[in-house]
Write a protein that binds this DNA or RNA. Structure first.
Lengths: 337, 337
DNA sequence: CTGTTAGCGCATTCAA
DNA sequence: TTGAATGCGCTAACAG
């Protein structure tokens, strides 16, 4: 069945379409009786305005785009939850742009940030290149980077380096000297540098403590629980295995815990583990980890964006996402220290 | 900056807009030289067609709506992952309708299933009422229910009752006689009956084994790990506590495991636990559970929908989502049996 | 207070 | 092979 249009409503109510539009949007005063008639016609025809028509006419889409790389990773889903919790109460629609490959990444940056497609854009965990930035600028779409940074865009960055350094310092304070890093590849093809940053924080902590940074204690692989497990197994088979492991993410930390379990190693007795993110299952796993306030970062991201849509702001805001070390039960002093 | 329109391209290329449209959509033959000029103009202006214009003109939105209740629950995120994995390779956009309250539920069913808004609809875990169904029918939008059923809609239902019964039979086979149920409220305000079904499977298994169904062994609460933990604590304090617990979901099963841990109970030595869903962390928690093939159900849902959009199908298809009991390490014979 | 009209950007006819 | 005109459904400006 063909949906009713504003013309159908107008005819049924015996008014012009301008009047119908007026009652729909409260855009100008309407006589009470007339309004009632219109309202009745709307109800009888079960009329809901066609968004494309409205968008075309207003130049506003009432849609917010969310760009999410690696939707498979729990941390991204948690951020998205934060976004949804706010959007549900607004009258914006959300359209999701999932990015799993570099091709997709580029396609999204090329096509998405445009007037007429979306009113605002949230980008998770991706650092725009200069080309990307120029496109966004040209598109003139309010944009917020969550867990990302660009000097000329509104961003909610995370100070990865410091957070990681603190996490490793916690291990050092417990007396660990042999601390390994299990993480993502340092140069990911998407142009982020999260793993690089976290590794840097790790290195800085060790350097500050006068400890060597051993290459065999650095294991990099695809962001995945199983790969982390494999890498950990290798680490544990080293002649001089680490007594603690700092990981790039909770997801990988879980792989580390599995490896320890495979080997019959007690955590934290024989091995301490620190994660990163504080995804929901970190609590269940009693994992000591760096809390990124994922849900909250999604909330803050949309709130900023919604505000930007209403009150455009030229000078980019930069609000650091707060971070804290949550000490649970996977860290303890090394056994024979 | 204002984005280029098809007119800008036409002017720049020195052709009519019809020609531009033709090269854009390959809708009619275009002289090679002309096409090249148009293509160049498109590139120079960085032109991308405005979707609203296209939608309005074609009556197709190239958008698929996904209705997701309780996005906070991991199982839903996993289904969505399945959907995204397919959509990323198509040229459809995804818009997300999150449902957390009954009001939202009704609003979504009222406004969303309409021509001009979306080309297809996937609904997770919600059973349409007759009103909902009539709206969908009237909207004439291809619709697929995932983990839901309606006799006149395409559905991918799950046979909860049987799956739950098998799960409990596994516990019975191990020798358990005192089996409790921890789950959602039996009547949820959204009109689903998942908890009811799973409880029914549980009851049937007990009845078949000639065992009584004890009301103090039935604990119902809000779908949440913490509430499940509380309920379990009560259960364990009973004069005659259960030796096994079947839960409505993995999420709740994790709460049960936490409670056991709180009490210093060994799982499965002192308490066996069976979950439902097989979310990703179930594997980590080594939880015996009913696998719902969540990711796969999302994949199947969109694939069916995409197909329906192309080849409309009146007679509703009904494809049961397969289910299997995954036995891991949270179930064992009761200690003193 | 309200009806009529122009125009948003596009695909698609109808002519040429 | 192509340009011009029409209409998709709507909002907003204009005119009463």
């Amino acid at each position: 069945m063909v949906p009713a249009t504003i013309h159908d409503v107008a005819k049924k109510a015996g008014v012009g379409i301008g009047t119908v539009s007026s009652v729909l949007n409260n855009s100008r005063p309407v006589n009470k009786a007339t309004r009632e008639r219109v309202l009745r016609a709307i109800a009888e025809l079960d009329f809901v305005p066609n968004p494309s028509g409205r968008r075309l006419s207003m130049g506003k889409t009432h849609t917010i785009g969310v760009v999410i790389p690696f939707f498979t990773i729990s941390s991204q889903a948690e951020r998205l939850r934060g976004v949804m919790s706010i959007i549900a109460g607004s009258d914006y629609d959300i359209t999701l742009y999932s990015v799993e490959t570099v091709t997709q990444r580029n396609k999204v940056f090329q096509r998405v940030p445009r007037r007429g497609r979306i009113d605002g854009l949230i980008i998770f965990s991706l650092i725009p290149t200069e080309d990307d930035f120029n496109r966004i600028k040209r598109g003139n779409i309010p944009t917020v980077l969550v867990e990302g940074y660009h000097p000329q865009l509104h961003s909610l960055p995370v100070d990865d380096v410091t957070a990681s350094q603190h996490a490793v310092e916690h291990l050092l304070a417990l007396g660990h000297q042999k601390i390994a890093y299990v993480g993502d590849y340092l140069d990911d093809p998407f142009g982020t540098y999260f793993s690089r940053n976290r590794y840097q924080g790790y290195s800085q902590a060790l350097a500050k403590a006068g400890l060597p940074i051993l290459s065999e204690y650095r294991r990099l692989g695809w962001h995945d629980r199983n790969e982390a497990r494999e890498m950990t197994l290798e680490l544990l088979q080293l002649p001089d295995p680490p007594t603690a492991i700092f990981t790039f993410s909770d997801e990988q930390a879980l792989g580390v815990l599995e490896a320890a379990r495979d080997q019959g190693l007690n955590v934290p007795g024989n091995l301490s583990v620190v994660g990163y993110d504080d995804i929901r299952l970190a609590e269940f796993a009693q994992l000591t980890t760096v809390r990124q306030n994922l849900f909250e970062s999604g909330v803050q991201g949309v709130e900023l964006l919604l505000n930007l849509i209403e009150f455009p702001q030229e000078t980019p805001s930069r609000i650091q996402i707060s971070t804290e070390l949550v000490i649970r039960k996977t860290t303890a002093p090394p056994r024979n220290s």
